[in-house]
């Protein structure tokens, strides 16, 4: 009986200690140092948008669906920004072969995105991107709340709908 008491109190004590610890943290952007198309060094953990949602899209010059996604959003980007304040960060994973062609392509296409150059795939690996296009959505606190691979016509409608929900304070993360 005494033994049982000891064991029980021991367990309870241990659990009490355990209960004090914090809840699991939400996923945030990993810290990777890469450059933007203007040659400025950026720490990816510091990507933010004044409390508004951020879309991060991994793409490359050799990826047709990626460029389709960026061109499609470019047509409505101004409206999206006015309505929701969302910002899109386009992360090019082109390597030294074509990374220098990214800036002229972005400007030639009239894309008004923040564009980062992940020439050796460091950010891509830290974000566990296998195939592109791979798009992430961050809420105003910088937490990764949604992600999607591939692009098909109309996928952008789901994306902006999610941004609107985030702005209303709804929780859009997939429940496990």
């Amino acid at each position: 009986m005494k033994k049982l008491f000891l064991v029980t109190s021991y367990l309870l004590l241990s659990v009490a200690v355990f209960a004090q610890t914090e809840a699991p943290k939400a996923k945030k952007l990993p810290s990777v140092t890469i450059k933007d198309i203007n040659g400025k060094t950026i720490n990816t953990a510091e990507i933010s948008n004044n409390g508004k949602p951020v879309i991060i899209s991994f793409w490359a010059l050799w990826c047709k669906p990626c460029q389709k996604e960026l061109s499609t959003i470019a047509e409505v980007y101004e409206e999206w920004q006015k309505e929701t304040g969302v910002k899109l960060v386009a992360v090019s994973i082109d390597d030294a072969r074509s990374s220098s062609r990214v800036l002229p392509t972005v400007n030639g296409n009239n894309w008004n995105y923040q564009v980062l150059l992940d020439v050796n795939g460091d950010f891509k690996r830290a974000m566990n991107v296998n195939m592109i296009p791979h798009t992430f959505l961050l809420n105003g606190k910088g937490e990764i709340v949604w992600q999607h691979t591939s692009f098909a016509e109309g996928s952008e409608l789901e994306l902006i709908e999610l941004v609107r929900k985030l702005n209303k304070g709804e929780d859009i993360s997939v429940k496990k």
Partner: peptide
């Protein structure tokens, strides 16, 4: 049991304050 049980919980603590991510193909 006395030694390992709290360790397991501590280990869980450490895991809880960090995050695990990954991918599969």
């Amino acid at each position: 049991f006395i030694c390992v049980f709290p360790l397991l919980l501590t280990a869980q603590n450490v895991l809880n304050s960090g995050s695990i991510q990954g991918n599969f193909q």
